[in-house]
Design a protein around this nucleic acid. Structure first.
Lengths: 337, 337
DNA sequence: TATATTTGCGTAATCGATTACGTAAATAGA
DNA sequence: TCTATTTACGTAATCGATTACGCAAATATA
């Protein structure tokens, strides 16, 4: 039943050659005669020889594997980014190891550690909500493994990043709502610690300033990244009977929950409350009403992050300067605003 | 800058011991004295020693990595299944390598090949739409790598599977619609070749038979697994002006597209057309109207598949009998029906 | 006291590939 | 014709760990 994996020795024995000769023949070394190469290559094909990647990796200290750490596969833009990376990396012979941090700093640390021990050639990360220390990434870099941040990047400046301009994106959403005549815009912010959350909040504030209005702190809701939290937080907010006419949520999931809460309260969207989400997840155009939202080029972010890795994989770790790429977002206007 | 990875030899040299002694001490072998063990373990901690997993894997012929192949991360139930697997496998020290076949047979073959070459300890697969040959899986099994199918399993009987009873699930949906007084139920089937598509169709037919009604072949729409295809296929179907009062779609995404088409045609849901989807994706409860659908225990499917792997990883390949697990689905009734 | 056994460790071989180095035979140059 | 250089391999070392085996010293048994 159990067929043995063919190894170089099997080919060598069959052709009365030595193992290194076979190895060199397969890699088309100049030291090997044409006839020998031909014989080896043909037999290797016939026997369906495939190199043991563990042995190759051990010897060459290169595995052609890249680790990707994302908060969760549930997030549409995370999956999209991963898919973009694969697109680029596969072409260069790399395969991708995906890890979910599930927004846990501890898991993230363990995963980075495991990727290092597995000797991946690079690590691409979108950090978890709870990540505040970056030692694990520095460890990886010190082992000579390039680290690239994408989407959620830390303040740490020692590594390249691919991000969007969160402040600008938030501003564009708020200005859009101003244009629709809204002035009292609820902002459903994400988890307070998260950087993108803060930055989008800054955008919110700046937009108010630019428009000559005073922002009202009572309009800010902090909650987690889930529909349910969005629903509950909005529900309890609405009970306070604060006057509102617009709503901007840090992401579409939270927004969906918020919309449900608003509608349950008898308010009409967009007539009473105009709503803008973030991410343009696939289903939001089919909601009632279809959601206005900010499209983030997740797939492209993934591709760019992968390209940065390809650039940095051979860089001399001594004097390399991290790159920071900022990709553009797009406001998709639909009927909710 | 580049700190060297600590290896056994570094510890051995520092303590004037041999490499095997250090190795044994770390694995708590009975052949090593207590004092030596203590010294080794402490120094290993202090130096932050981590074994090179490539070397360990090569020597032990065991990598503690499991390959998972899914059609796409976009599919909610695929991500859910993967998450369930990780839950189980992590506890046993395995990490997971995720590959997306993107519904391509060729990609699937390459990925299986790559997983074999990477010497994973097992492969868990949900096959692609276009997979009709199973030689690549048989190859893996012949190399001694257990293969477990989940969700989408082939007819091939030589491996264990974890699936749902697609026929029964479809029947329950149709009977539910009958109970609501519907008789002319459109079935939006998936790709014709796909097994789950056929099986759900059988369920559709059987339900009709059990209810004493004659199914109408004109009510069947074959199309791909995407919103857009669901939308377009339904749109062109509705142009034929065939009389309908119910709709059952092979999955929620297709269903969302179909619902959009139905609503655009001026038909009311559920009054004119009662609708049932499949999968209970997270957003469908927020559609207008919220979608009735069949919940598939994707997370549990993943967990069970992982458990089967754990059971089979040490089995004697000679006389092992494949297991077939069938998990229960649940009809979630909402306002669309 | 003499032999048997255990304890604790080292040496050598191994996993499957790659690379440094050596060398006989074939060819080239003087 | 004799030396210099290629050509085309083979041998040995290496990557970092694990395992088989051997062996001296310490302890136990007779």
């Amino acid at each position: 039943m159990k067929k043995k994996q063919i190894k170089l020795k099997d080919i060598a024995d069959a052709l009365h050659l030595s193992v290194p000769t076979v190895s060199r023949a397969l890699r088309d070394s100049y030291e090997i005669s044409q006839e020998t190469k031909k014989a080896v290559v043909e037999l290797a094909r016939a026997m369906n020889y495939k190199p043991n990647l563990l042995a190759v990796g051990l010897r060459k200290n290169k595995t052609f594997k890249v680790g990707v750490i994302i908060p969760s596969l549930w997030y549409y833009y995370n999956s999209a980014a991963v898919t973009g990376m694969e697109e680029v990396l596969e072409e260069h012979g790399y395969s991708v190891m995906i890890c979910q941090s599930k927004e846990s700093y501890n898991r993230e640390v363990i995963q980075v550690r495991n990727l290092i021990d597995s000797r991946v050639d690079g690590i691409l990360v979108s950090i978890s909500q709870s990540t505040i220390k970056y030692d694990h990434f520095i460890d990886a870099q010190e082992e000579g493994i390039p680290v690239i941040f994408f989407d959620r990047a830390p303040s740490y400046e020692g590594a390249s990043k691919v991000v969007i301009d969160n402040k600008l994106a938030a501003k564009s959403a708020i200005h859009h709502l101003f244009k629709k005549g809204r002035k009292r815009i609820v902002f459903i912010a994400g988890p307070e610690k998260l950087r993108i959350s803060k930055t989008r909040y800054e955008g919110y504030l700046e937009a108010y300033k630019e428009h000559g209005l005073e922002p009202d702190e009572n309009l800010i809701i902090n909650c987690n990244f889930t529909k349910n939290m969005g629903y509950r937080a909005t529900k309890s907010f609405l009970r306070k009977n604060i006057d509102i006419d617009g709503l901007f949520a840090i992401n579409d999931r939270t927004c969906i929950g918020a919309v449900a809460a608003v509608q349950e309260a008898g308010l009409k969207i967009p007539q009473d409350v105009a709503v803008v989400g973030f991410n343009d997840e696939p289903t939001v155009q089919y909601l009632t009403p279809p959601l206005t939202t900010i499209r983030q080029p997740a797939y492209e972010i993934g591709m760019e992050a992968a390209k940065l890795f390809l650039k940095e994989r051979n860089a001399d770790t001594g004097q390399f300067t991290p790159t920071k790429l900022i990709l553009e977002t797009e406001l998709i206007v639909r009927e909710s605003s």
